[in-house]
Simulated scan of single mutants.
Amino acid sequence: MKKILSGSAVAALCVAFVSEAAATEWNASVWGKRRAFTEHVEKLSELVSEKTNGDFTINVSYGGLSKPRENLDGIEIGAFEMAQFCAGYHRDKNRAITVLELPFLGVNNLDEEVAVSHAVYDHPAVKDEMAQWNARIIMTSPMPQYNIVGTGDPRDELAEFEGMRVRATGGLGKAFEAVGGVPTSVPATEAFNAMESGVVDTVAFAQHAHLSFGTINEADWWTANLNPGTVNCPVVVNIDAYEALPAEHREALDSSIDEAIDHYLANYGSLLDQWDSVLDEKGVAKVQIDDAVIAEFRTKAADPIRAQWIEDMSAQGIPAQDLYDLVQSTLEQQRSGN
């Protein structure tokens, strides 16, 4: 005997099919554990779900989808739709944005870091290079200037950096190398083991990472004001996945980026406010490097490394001088309030 659906039942089924078809589920590949460095990704996930009544969800995976150094490769092949990576992990794949990892750029705070990063991300050369990996950068992961933790006596003279084995990537690694250090670029997740086993003497991180990856627990001292630079870690989306989003979902994502960054900055500010108490709690000495030592470091590292970077990148067809000038002009605009 045939069963005939009523008009209302048919309508309900149609609505259900439409809702199912309109639902979007993305996976985001990050690493480590949830921490200040990933709060904007978490907030973005929360916001897009709220704005779409749960029709657009972003599942944040901490290492379950890819290794940190392979996140950009995963984006290229569409293994997941969103990912975070750091430029220093594969400088050959993201040459243009390594301008943001040059030592002693002069960035003073996280707001300035956001401004210069997003200005560089909007440059056509950066967009073109990222498109080669089917990637679109949507936001930065702003971090303060890196400082180092170490064991034993503090290294507060430049001569003491000679032979120092330091976990430092990108431009930071080159800066320490310029003053006799021996940089290694082990992933953040391996930094504690490298320090504990003596593979490295010191580790260069921003504050949140010293906490999250446990290097602060091995440390006897921390440099409060060395500030040689930082790393740049964008959040990217797969271009095909982004362009395939329904208009309302793309709008939910785009309109949530500034909110996610604001949340990140507020959260990170709270961590910085508590940093001195963290040092006290863990018995880590706060080392102030003499201004003359920092000036000597800058002289040996900043100008030569910048000049070499501009020469090398220009030879590869990257508008290096233009990118460096963009960083400086953005800093000027940011400080003038324009």
Score class of each variant (00 low, 15 high):
Glu39Val: 06
Asp55Ile: 08
Glu25Ser: 14
Glu81Asn: 13
Leu72Lys: 03
Trp31His: 10
Arg35His: 15
Ser61Cys: 03
Arg34Pro: 15
Ala83Met: 04
Ser29Cys: 11
Glu39Gln: 05
Leu72Asp: 00
Arg35Trp: 15
Glu81Trp: 04
Glu81Gln: 13
Gly64Leu: 02
Glu81Leu: 01
Asn71Lys: 00
Asp55Pro: 00
Ala28Phe: 08
Gly64Arg: 02
Arg34Tyr: 15
Glu39Tyr: 10
Lys43Ser: 09
Gly32Gln: 05
Glu50Gln: 15
Gly54Lys: 10
Ile58Tyr: 10
Asn27His: 12
Gly32Ala: 08
Thr38Arg: 14
Asp73Trp: 11
Val48Cys: 05
Leu47Glu: 12
Ser29Asp: 07
Asn71Gln: 02
Ser45Thr: 04
Glu42Thr: 09
Glu50Ile: 09
Tyr62Cys: 02
Val48Gln: 04
Glu39His: 09
Ala83Phe: 02
Gly64Tyr: 00
Ser61Thr: 01
Glu81Ala: 08
Glu46Gln: 12
Ala28Gly: 12
Ala28Thr: 04
Ile75Leu: 07
Ser49His: 14
Leu72His: 02
Asn53Lys: 14
Phe37Ser: 11
Ser45Met: 03
Lys51Gly: 14
Lys51Glu: 10
Trp31Glu: 05
Ser49Ile: 11
Met82Thr: 00
Pro68Val: 13
Asn27Ile: 01
Trp26Val: 00
Leu44Asp: 12
Arg35Val: 14
Gly63Ile: 02
Glu46Gly: 01
Val30Asp: 00
Glu39Ile: 03
Ser45Leu: 07
Val60Asn: 09
Val60Gly: 03
Asn27Val: 02
Val48His: 11
Asn27Trp: 11
Ala36Lys: 13
Ala28Val: 01
Leu72Gly: 00
Glu76Ala: 14
Ala36Cys: 09
Ser61Ala: 14
Trp26Gln: 02
Val48Pro: 13
Glu76Gln: 10
Leu47His: 11
Asn53Tyr: 10
Leu47Asp: 06
Phe37Leu: 10
